[in-house]
Design a protein around this nucleic acid. Structure first.
Lengths: 252, 252
DNA sequence: TAACGTCTGTGCGGTATCGTACACAATATA
DNA sequence: TATATTGTGTACGATACCGCACAGACGTTA
């Protein structure tokens, strides 16, 4: 069944911001795909074959060290695009992209994506704005990893994640969060326990429910607000180009 | 006195990789400027007025937190360009650019730079390759800050810095290094003391001399090699376009 | 030569996080 | 219903780094 929706969260903002005629050129080549939780879009040093435009899915970009330790360097939702290095002219990757919240998105063949990008029209203009956002987010992660506590970072991460969801519950184990933040699972257990005692969240085996957003905000580091503001600013510049070729997301 | 040199380190690689005709278009507008140690090219949230192409100078990009704590998110030498966010369509900054090794470089008016970039010719193509390198470097910093010790990071930093210099001595206090790595000065004193005892470096009041590169490499984290390799790969792709409009650097 | 400011060395208690180990609880599978 | 698997809670010593305090050494300027 195809469900049409006007919900913004049900569209990729980059595609949505393209003028109709340019989007129509791309449309026949966009594959609507499911992006199930845990699936890996690309691995470190892969040769990129596709570009992805998430809609309801959220993807985590992670850097993996030689010893297997991982660190989340950015999160990508419907405001973004994956395979930025390809668009920039380097088809090999320097990170891993793993689906953090299952959902759907569009996939586009690498060659076609590059061709459209290199026309230097709206896709390029919008993508560049997004790249700038991505750079900001990554530099923030570098600083945040240096200076902020696990609890602060957990709050930031939870807030950024539920901001992208329609519900306040996310399917996620403490183990997974730990690997994204690059810390021990026990560290997350402790921090999450504190948040639970404070009444800000609740959880059970792989499900986390946010009960008090503003409570989390008081504990989160400044990084949350910075990313959120930057993201809002970004989306408002996207919409300088406005139109209505909204696309549906298939639901099972 | 103007000194002409064929040394690669005496030119900005991005400009050098542009085809002659496109470079000639830019040339009249390029100001050769001194970039003295410690000078700030732009601050957080500044409105960018210029684009810089370092030649002999090295610039450190730092993220500054609300409490004043800082973290280096990338270093920019003659392989790069500063004010990337401007070129990407957002003229406000999200970091600070401070000269870490004094030298010279070219400065270009923001409007002209943007105009040339938006022609979607060689400057854009090369800059995009560089942006990709920058993204890689930033994500590496995020992971490195999370997982590696001060000593490892100090080694990485020293190696990356002298790789950009012709000499093996750099003018730099422990205090400054500490603020770049985002750690206490005492932490650097201790790590540097170890390296000195090991015979890898020597130093005196604001001067550090590297005595044993390979020794440092054994102690540095993997991040050094990763950045170095990525950087070499980048420069080889720059030179797909080759020409000879080498520019001199004014020496005092 | 003296006085000053800056840079470096050192010590010490406090704390966040790690590594490891193990117990228990919830869910899935047989 | 029994059993395996996965997720969570807890404890404890080790360690890296922090914050602070102060001494001494170097280099510059008067």
């Amino acid at each position: 069944m195809i469900i049409t929706s006007t919900q913004a969260s049900n569209h990729n903002r980059i595609l949505a911001a393209m003028p109709v005629d340019e989007f129509e050129r791309l449309k026949p080549h966009l594959e609507l795909i499911q992006m199930p939780l845990g699936s890996v879009l690309y691995e470190f040093s892969d040769r990129l074959q596709h570009v992805w435009f998430p809609m309801t899915a959220i993807v985590s970009l992670q850097y993996i060290m030689e010893d297997g330790a991982s660190t989340e360097i950015a999160g990508v939702g419907n405001e973004g695009v994956l395979s930025v290095s390809l668009l920039m002219g380097d088809s090999t990757t320097s990170n891993r992209a793993i689906v953090q919240t299952g959902g759907c998105g569009y996939r586009l063949n690498a060659g076609l994506a590059l061709q459209e990008f290199n026309r230097a029209e709206s896709l390029q203009r919008i993508s560049l704005l997004y790249f700038q956002m991505l750079i900001t987010q990554m530099s923030l992660m570098a600083a945040c990893n240096r200076h902020h506590s696990i609890e602060q970072q957990l709050c930031r991460w939870l807030l950024l994640t539920i901001d992208r969801l329609t519900s306040n519950e996310l399917i996620m184990t403490q183990e997974l969060i730990a690997s994204m933040l690059g810390v021990r699972r026990e560290g997350i257990t402790e921090a999450a326990g504190n948040l639970k005692n404070a009444g800000f969240i609740n959880y059970r085996r792989g499900h986390i429910t946010v009960l008090d957003r503003s409570g989390l905000e008081t504990l989160a580091c400044e990084c949350y607000q910075v990313i959120k503001k930057k993201s809002e600013g970004l989306l408002s510049t996207y919409s300088n180009v406005n139109n209505s070729h909204t696309q549906a997301c298939r639901k099972k």
